[in-house]
């Protein structure tokens, strides 16, 4: 199977070495691309499957974990870095059709924090699809405020789906009803109601429909000790595996990690506020407060998801806030 060069300027092909090279760039602050191999589903599927895919022409941007209201090292002003992310989006040569925010918009579920976030994000002049992070449902009423504000036209605890340019988007919510970690790992849950809804939502769609799944916590277990996973994610991915291209975008862990499972590629995103440590490299998953101010923007970023110039699955480009 021939691998393809990234269409968005990344130097890496599909080789593991190329990917690692890109990963190394993350630390140097160069605007970098991760579009080699791993996220490019077409290369993994082969041309026959790719040819069957519905044509689409779509570019959108993912931002995540803005944590408006956070005020400690390494970023006392996450509103400013969110504004930088929006400025970066506005300057993109190919304007995105819309934005998705994969949760933790606010730090503490306060109306004024969402006000600030929305005010800044509106500067992009784009439609925005939001999902909550656990920090957005941390009010005493367990998410009532978020759902009142952002949950219009959603199902259950805020899940929904929509279509754009032939791509089917599913926004899953895994920040309610966490399992306490007494006997289990303390992972996130999608829950039976949502999973049944998902099964019905995708049931009648042709397998050639490209699928994008939005979720806050990862839909695979990245690090159980820190609760970085969703216990019933396997069931959700089971309903999706017949589709030729499934791209799962999530936030929560404030760093970019990827996984491929058949036709499903899973991608965690950078934060616009502060980085968190790589799994197991610190006593706890809190903010990396030791990051000096001059280095902070190397860890923050936005992601472009581009179906326009590829034949099947999307090309993903992660850009840091440097420059």
């Amino acid at each position: 199977m021939k691998s393809e060069q990234s269409p968005s300027g990344g130097a890496a092909g599909t080789s593991r070495r190329g990917l690692l090279k890109c990963m190394a760039w993350a630390g140097t602050g160069v605007v970098w691309s991760l579009s080699g191999g791993v996220p490019r589903t077409i290369g993994l599927l082969g041309s026959a499957a790719a040819a069957e895919m519905a044509p689409s022409d779509l570019t959108f941007v993912q931002i995540s974990d803005s944590h408006i209201g956070f005020h400690l090292p390494p970023n006392p002003d996450p509103t400013a870095t969110l504004a930088e992310a929006i400025a970066k989006i506005k300057a993109m040569p190919v304007p995105p059709a819309f934005l998705v925010h994969t949760g933790d918009i606010s730090h503490l579920s306060k109306e004024e924090q969402w006000d600030t976030a929305e005010q800044v994000i509106r500067g992009a002049n784009k439609q925005v699809f939001y999902i909550p992070g656990e920090h957005d449902v941390a009010d005493a009423d367990n998410g009532k405020a978020y759902l009142a504000r952002f949950g219009k036209n959603t199902q259950g605890k805020g899940w929904y789906s929509f279509d754009m340019a032939g791509v089917h988007f599913v926004a899953l919510i895994n920040v309610f009803n966490f399992q306490p970690g007494f006997k289990s790992a303390g992972l996130a849950v999608l829950g039976d109601d949502q999973l049944e809804w998902l099964e019905k939502d995708v049931a009648g769609r042709p397998s050639s429909t490209p699928i994008v799944v939005l979720a806050h916590l990862p839909l695979w277990t990245i690090y159980e000790q820190w609760g970085w996973g969703t216990s019933d994610a396997g069931r959700a991915l089971g309903y999706l595996k017949r589709f030729g291209s499934v791209t799962v975008l999530n936030g929560h862990i404030h760093q970019i990690i990827q996984k491929v499972e058949g036709n499903v590629t899973l991608h965690t995103a950078a934060s616009t506020a502060f980085p968190q440590p790589a799994p197991g490299t610190a006593p706890a998953p809190g903010p990396m407060k030791e990051v000096p101010a001059a280095e902070l923007r190397k860890y923050l970023g936005v992601r472009t998801v581009d179906y326009a110039r590829s034949k099947g699955g999307p090309a993903l480009t992660d850009s840091t806030l440097v420059g």
Binding site: E134, A138, F178, G181, A185, G186, Q225, W226
Partner: peptide, 9 residues
């Protein structure tokens, strides 16, 4: 437990 970080019990 901490309902934000449920592994904290």
């Amino acid at each position: 437990f901490c309902s934000i970080h449920p592994y904290m019990v």
